[in-house]
Design a protein around this nucleic acid. Sequence first.
DNA 1: TCGGAAAGCGCC
DNA 2: AAAGGGCGCTTTCCGA
Length: 582
Amino acid sequence: MSGGLTENITCPVSPLTFGPCAPVGRPRQTDPVHIALSRAASVVTAVELEESGHELARHELDARALAPWIREREADHPRWVWNDTAHWYPSLLAAGVRISRCVDLRLCHRILRRAASAAASELASAPRGGWDSPARPPESPTTSAMLFELEPPPVDDDPVAEWRRQREAVEGSARPGRLALLLAGESVGALVAAEMRFAGLPWSHERHDELLTELLGPRPTVGRPAKMEAVLARVRAALDDQEFSPDSPVELVKGLQRAGVRATSARSGDLKQLTHPAIAPLLEYKKLSRLHSANGWNWLDEWVRDGRFRPSYVPGGVVTGRWASDGGGALQLPRQVRGAVIADPGWTFVVADAAQLEPRVLAAISGDTAMARAGQSQDMYQGMVDSGAVETRPQAKYGMLGAIYGGTTGESGRMKPRIERAFPRAMEYVEAAARAGERGEVVSTWLGRSSPPGRGDSYDETASDAQLMKLRNDARGWGRFTRNFVVQGTAAEWALCWMGSLRRRLWEVGGGDGAATELTARPHLVFFLHDELIVHSPIRLAVDVSTALRDSAAEAGRLLFGAAPVEFAITVAVVDRYDLAK
DNA sequence: TCGGAAAGCGCC
DNA sequence: AAAGGGCGCTTTCCGA
């Protein structure tokens, strides 16, 4: 099998960068296509490199002159090579400079260090060094001076040497096209993460406060909000216990037992099984309490400023390649508060969601044509019903989720034989990934991101991750992890490609390089949630943005899977409030 | 008094 | 409604 279409596209500049394909002024043979940046104190060194890696020129710049210099050089759309996007890009954005492509060396290093397809490379076998350390925190005026004095940059910090090592690792790998696409996707993701934080998600402080007041009562200066207190009073009355304490799981269970209720845990799901008049108000209390503590007024004060929610995203923060977030809980925004996400006047949101992304990804990576056929429908689960594989949509949904997650009980367990019969290649694929995990082997995504080493391997990279360590000691549990890894991880790769393609298209919709306006004056990404994107757009461009979203989804499918007959359907909604999208 | 672990629940 | 892989965040608990 080939690496998809990625090897076949001809383009003056590599398409694997998610940058413009036909730059103004086609590069001459000696034009630099990469510019590597490094910094020592206030001096920035910029090294211009040919595609071959040959050094063309070297400049030393004062750090304060960097942004205008980059703006000027950006006309040729070089790839900016730097250690951490999160270190360099925020200050450029603040100076009004948007770049089209980069190589985030640390994110790429992390992938290559572990990639099974590049295991023979010098990079993979080198001792751990500075590039294996976590990213240096972005400079902040209060801490940077101190940190830099205490921790001098590691000696192997040279971005040019590292870039060459990475290029060798990719070129010598079993799947150079796929790995190159993965690294390009990871890097463009880092650009998007910085841009989304810079732009912020439009958030109405006023509407959020109204929502909280409706549900909880007015903000109290001390103690519980009035409506929470009232619900708690109903719980206490039903238990005939004025001392009942709902906020500690231990106390909650004890309190219920004192009243003769056979509770063994404080989990909502378990409480729901019980029949007692106190249960309904108690569940209601827990719901309100969660909202109050996680996304209440304190959250609003801390995270929403000047009408924008600016969380910090962590590209590649999850072992599977999904993003994580660091503060603000951007990836867990409860539906309850999404009504506070309101577009600016004259602007709107274009909200797009990849429909049944993981099942479609499974059809593609396993080459299961029957499953791919079901995916010709906009609604893949309905397509599975129409093909006769199962009788109802819920059967299709839980059957598929069971296949992907390794479920054995309930409806998903019951559906397993039928799914196996209808989609044998897909099931064989995930079963093989699970067995490999149980044996302690490494598995890899379609583009080549490899799972952490399995059981029995004396490898300490993730030793600090308690959850992974626990899972690793449970063969079946680790098998479920690797089974899910190949699907979730490849879905994350599709999403990166979708986002990278969209980013380039949005820039064009906004006028391309000809329009000398800043990022937030054009349609721009403001939110990303695994398989969902939100674009904040001037109303008059919403149709073009919708088209760009669909074209990007199709392009992502082609980039990963070439001509494979798998459709990646998305739903698109143009709304001025996020909660209206679904 | 502080910090890590566990419980619980939000998102996909 | 079901099953359950991946996370982050808040609160409580408990021991150093």
